[in-house]
Design a protein around this nucleic acid. Structure first.
Lengths: 171, 171
DNA sequence: ATGAAAAGCGTGACTTAGTCACATACTTAA
DNA sequence: TTAAGTATGTGACTAAGTCACGCTTTTCAT
């Protein structure tokens, strides 16, 4: 019934961009939740990453569903809770984690079963709220340590376990 | 009926701390919203800043109120929307704004009608997700430019308008 | 097919922010 | 009134971000 993902990003005046979170199939997208409730508008921007197949719920219908449809309510609340968790994790990441840990986590999140990550360094930078140059240097540092192997447009993760250690709160 | 404020903070392993948002009188506190919905727990920590007088709503009661009490629902959704806006602003701040702008915004937010801010530099640092030393240096830079006057435990804002300019997206 | 443009990556030099270590001044309470 | 705790200032260093390039690979129009 639903398919495709939406990434919600924030863009600064200087062009720097950070991914706030992603909305996945089966989730309720809350981008306009503020509007539904009190007309608040977000500065964030949603962008489809793939072809989309979604249901759009008009405001009146939304109000009705919340009251009458326990299932909808459940999904809605779950979506809200997930967004909170995502955003809190993001704040923690950006404000309090060093870049090597953030990059390590991103690689682990994004790699497939074969340990392949298909993404440009630019995309990785946006993913972790940093910039290409920093990602480039850090990836090369990882590569020097034998943690990954780099080729244009993707990264092969050689030592997921060691990345995982890095990704954890280094004391 | 309700009084006092709660600050919700995130603390890293290294002891660095950042304020996620505040819950004010009349607002619904969502700290445990995840729990209400699906048992997710937050890593964030709530802390009363003043004496509190609050209503605590048990889970069963919550479910009932959401369905039956339109007013409660309205308040709840408003709280959710506010939190989102807060968190998005915070991410934007931390990830994309230089610290002079962040500090300027914090001072403007926190000052009273006489332009007095009563807070230690340590507290200001937590407020903007930075550290004391950086705040100290930045405040002294502001002072050198005649924007503020510093005394132990508080800051006198002399030129709110110029701070406001600083606080805006410097191109 | 080929040459130009665009996309992706690497890197040096520099700026800004955060860390560490320590000095100094003010405040409070025994 | 002095010792302990709190608040601040500062130099030296590290980490991250910015700026300005250059180089290679891919894409695409002709």
């Amino acid at each position: 019934m639903h398919s495709g993902t939406i990434k919600v990003t924030l863009t600064a005046e200087n062009g720097r961009e950070i991914i706030l979170y992603r909305v996945r199939p089966g989730e309720v997208c809350l981008q306009t939740f503020g509007c539904l409730v009190n007309g608040t508008s977000y500065s964030a921007e949603g962008q489809a990453e793939t072809d989309l197949e979604i249901d759009i719920v008009p405001v009146g219908e939304f109000q009705r569903l919340v009251v009458q449809d326990a299932d909808f309510r459940q999904q809605l609340f779950a979506a809200v809770a997930t967004r909170f968790a995502d955003l809190e994790r993001l704040v923690e990441d950006v404000a309090l984690s060093p870049i090597d840990a953030r990059l390590a986590r991103a690689l682990l999140r994004m790699m497939d079963e074969q340990g392949q990550v298909t993404a440009t360094q630019e995309a990785l930078a946006t993913e972790i709220g940093s910039v290409r140059e920093v990602v480039s240097r850090q990836l090369n540092a990882f590569a020097r340590d034998g943690l990954v192997e780099l080729t244009r447009g993707h990264i092969a993760v050689l030592a997921p376990n060691r990345l995982d250690q890095l990704s954890h709160p280094a004391v």
